[in-house]
Design a protein around this nucleic acid. Structure first.
Lengths: 102, 102
DNA sequence: GCGACGTGCAATCGTCGAGTTGCACAAGCC
DNA sequence: GGCTTGTGCAACTCGACGATTGCACGTCGC
């Protein structure tokens, strides 16, 4: 899963509302459809891409397919971003240091 | 700037290539256009949204408008993600603890 | 002054993706 | 058995957005 693809997956309000609900308790696509203003099929698609990205994990309970939020992928992403941010700031600090030495 | 909006801004390969270049040295839209396979106007638009998001900062040098990468916003985002990830994992840990106590 | 370079705005095109509707099928409950 | 509920697949619509092209304006250097 590429970096930009993961961002694209996270760049959707409906998906975040799903993640929030699924972060509180395990829920099926139908259960989510009752709490959100979109169709069950739309939610099923969202859950599919969320699962492909590793942000959500499925679990069968009877004939229900419930999902739960998984933090690992999000945590990994946070680490990458923090590292990139530090790289940029290092360069700016170096520039600033040179400027002050003049 | 909302969370999803920031993700949408980061969910583009061209913008990341711009960020990478601008993270190494200050560059203008025209200079970036010479290094990337897209038109100057396309890059100017990208720089505009990157600036609105706080991921890039402009600086006039003569008649050139150069940009540089800024890590603050990215670092802030990383912090938010890490916190959300921890919240999810806490719930899973609690569920696991209950399951093992049975 | 004049040409080259850098920037900005507007209109247009093509594509991708979120959402819907419709249908089919399996599993549980009266 | 019949009804409800949950899932899955396919076709379609529609809006957002990345990218291009064209034009106009300011600025620097010969």
């Amino acid at each position: 899963m590429t970096l930009t693809r993961t961002f694209a997956v996270l760049a959707d309000d409906t998906r975040w509302r799903i993640l929030q609900l699924v972060g509180e308790q395990d829920l099926s696509a139908s259960a989510l459809a009752k709490r959100l203003p979109v169709s069950r099929q739309a939610i099923a698609k969202h859950l599919s891409v969320l699962q492909e990205t590793g942000l959500v994990e499925p679990a069968w309970v009877g004939r229900e397919l419930r999902y739960r939020a998984a933090g690992a992928e999000l945590s990994r992403l946070a680490g990458e971003l923090e590292q990139i941010a530090r790289t940029w700031d290092r360069r700016l600090a170096a520039i600033k240091a040179v400027a002050e030495s003049l």
